Computed example of a mutant assay.
Amino acid sequence: MHQALERLAQSLCHRQPLMMHTLSEDLYDAVMENFKREGHPRWLPIDRAGKILQQSGRLAASIDSEADNDQAVAGANVVYARIRQQGGTTRPHTIRSRYNKVAAL
């Protein structure tokens, strides 16, 4: 009984294995499922063909998870991820068409 309590006390102090192998992986899986389902609840529709937020696949490919003794997180490392998640505005900028194609107005 004493050994079982000792193991329990150790597991409470050293939570990184739990955080890493369970919680951070569950967070990653939930984010990837969100991309697959196009949101939960569903993301707002778009005016182009293809899946929402997946035109190039860069955002979904940048999703990663990590953990330490106190927390487990999943997130993206591309600069536009935060505004896609939380909304907001950006500074004015010029939008250039790719491959010298003319944008229809």
Rank of each mutant, 00 (worst) to 15 (best):
T22Y: 08
R98M: 12
A67G: 03
H14Q: 13
Y99N: 15
D26R: 11
H21E: 11
L105D: 06
L59G: 00
K36H: 09
N34M: 06
A49W: 07
A81F: 00
R7S: 15
R58P: 00
A4G: 14
H2F: 05
K51R: 13
A60Y: 06
L12D: 10
E25N: 07
L12Y: 10
Y80G: 03
T22K: 13
K51V: 01
R82N: 06
A76R: 04
P45S: 09
R7H: 14
G39C: 07
L23K: 04
A60D: 02
M20Q: 12
R37C: 06
V73F: 03
R37T: 15
G87Y: 08
H2Q: 11
L8C: 07
L23T: 06
S56N: 07
G50P: 14
Q16W: 02
I63T: 14
S62K: 09
D47M: 11
H21I: 01
Y80P: 04
L59R: 05
E25H: 05
A104K: 12
S56P: 08
M19Y: 03
M20D: 08
A103M: 10
Y99W: 14
I95Q: 10
A81S: 11
A74V: 06
N34S: 15
A74L: 01
Q55T: 11
W43I: 05
Q55H: 06
A61M: 09
M32H: 08
F35C: 06
A9W: 04
V78A: 00
I83V: 15
M1R: 07
D47G: 15
V73E: 02
E6S: 15
V78E: 08
H40E: 13
F35W: 08
Q10Y: 12
D68K: 04
T94G: 00
L27W: 00
W43G: 01
A76V: 01
L105F: 05
V73P: 02
A74T: 04
R58Y: 02
N100E: 11
T94S: 04
H14E: 12
I52H: 02
I95V: 14
V102M: 13
P17E: 05
G75A: 02
P41Q: 12
Q16F: 01
D26Q: 13
T89L: 10
I46Y: 07
H14T: 11
V78L: 09
D26S: 09
E25V: 11
R98H: 13
F35E: 05
E6F: 09
T94P: 01
A74H: 03
E25C: 02
N100D: 13
N69P: 01
R42K: 15
L5Q: 15
V31D: 03
V79H: 01
R15Y: 00
E33S: 08
G88S: 10
H2P: 01
M32A: 00
A72N: 04
